[in-house]
Nucleic acid binder design. Structure first.
Lengths: 200, 200
DNA sequence: TAGCAAGTTGACCGCCCGGTCATGTTCGAC
DNA sequence: GTCGAACATGACCGGGCGGTCAACTTGCTA
């Protein structure tokens, strides 16, 4: 084991937290193109301080994305204990939409593409979503030919597209998530073309 | 009337066409962040030539987007004559997905935001989609609470999200468009929350 | 074929980006 | 209170961007 590194200074801890909060807000507002300088300014520190805590901008993106994904995995695991598999799936998709709000798939892809830690959390999310979908499918609540990756992608799609509108209505994603969920019901469903994706 | 401006030179016409084709391809591959220099190189001309034909990069984006939207409006008008309103709507959404392939809503928004010509074509598209949806609704093929803007947004959502994946499967959007279309059917649909959007 | 407007070129500009680093500052152990 | 390591700072760098322009080339007209 390493020789017990000295604990971080309190100001450093505080600045790191400010940076993460500022980055989360800035990425939500401007997407992955938000500049490091703007994030630093919002956090009330100089630009150099950002790179003391996160070696590259990608590392900062990964920290924010990993945090969000981990929160969502926790929700999925809790819901997989729920007795009603249909309600559990619907609640999971609402939670996914809210937690991934605005960041969109492109953000998460950029984060996980070259960062094994985020990629690992993403795979856990994929597995957790799969559990929820499988359970709902066994109970005859969703059609037989959809997977966890399918519902996650569709949820990302609704959230991101609403966020990309000229003046986004805050809750419009609920409308489209409802249509998507209705599209998952088994009665009268036409068979889906092509295979489901294996990754996001 | 203006005094009959001299017709454009043949090389200028050729270069303009090359530029539009190169821009369309480059925007499809790299999104709206494709650089003017890359577009010029792909078209086989120097960067300055781009700005002779299109005063700003935004004008070039508007030209490409306007062309795509106009093509889609033509498809919608043709399909509104079709006898089967359900087939017409499905074909329209497939055409929309194919024509808007990859560009996504953000591209079209950037194009129409400050360009009245593109905004006008976008409004025509919205109206044409409304006609198709209204007809299908009257025939009891789609649920009562969706609009033309709804189905256009959902189509943009599927196409764009598939394009944003790590390694996009070319036809995966068909899978998700099928789920969305199944979500539009009236039988057993749960009422949609919130009002439909009026613009894109 | 002569001449010129129209078209083309590529070096150049200012700007902003992610990232670096010498210098100055502050926390905390003793 | 002293002192050193950790930390913060902001000027600075190289690079790529959209956009400009004086000099050059070319297609068209007369």
């Amino acid at each position: 084991m390493p020789p017990a590194a000295r604990p971080a200074r309190v100001d450093a801890v505080r600045n790191r937290a400010s940076l993460l909060a500022a980055a989360e807000a800035e990425f939500a507002e401007r997407g992955i193109d938000a500049s490091v300088a703007d994030i630093a300014h919002r956090a009330g520190v100089a630009k150099g301080t950002v790179f003391r805590h996160f070696a590259t901008k990608d590392d900062l993106v990964a920290a924010v994305a990993g945090d969000r994904l981990a929160r969502l995995v926790a929700v999925a695991r809790r819901l997989s204990e729920s007795p009603d598999s249909g309600v559990a799936l619907r609640e999971f998709l609402s939670a996914a939409a809210e937690i991934l709000q605005q960041q969109g798939l492109a953000f998460l892809r950029a984060a996980s593409e070259c960062n094994p830690v985020v990629a690992e959390i993403r795979d856990q999310l994929l597995a957790s979503a799969g559990v929820l979908v499988d359970r709902a499918r066994r109970d005859g609540i969703v059609r037989a030919d959809v997977t966890g990756a399918d519902v996650l992608l569709l949820t990302c799609a609704t959230v991101h597209t609403v966020a990309a509108m000229s003046d986004p209505t805050p809750d419009l994603w609920r409308r489209y998530l409802a249509i998507v969920i209705d599209g998952l019901r088994p009665e009268g469903a036409s068979p889906l073309p092509g295979p489901a994706p294996e990754r996001l």
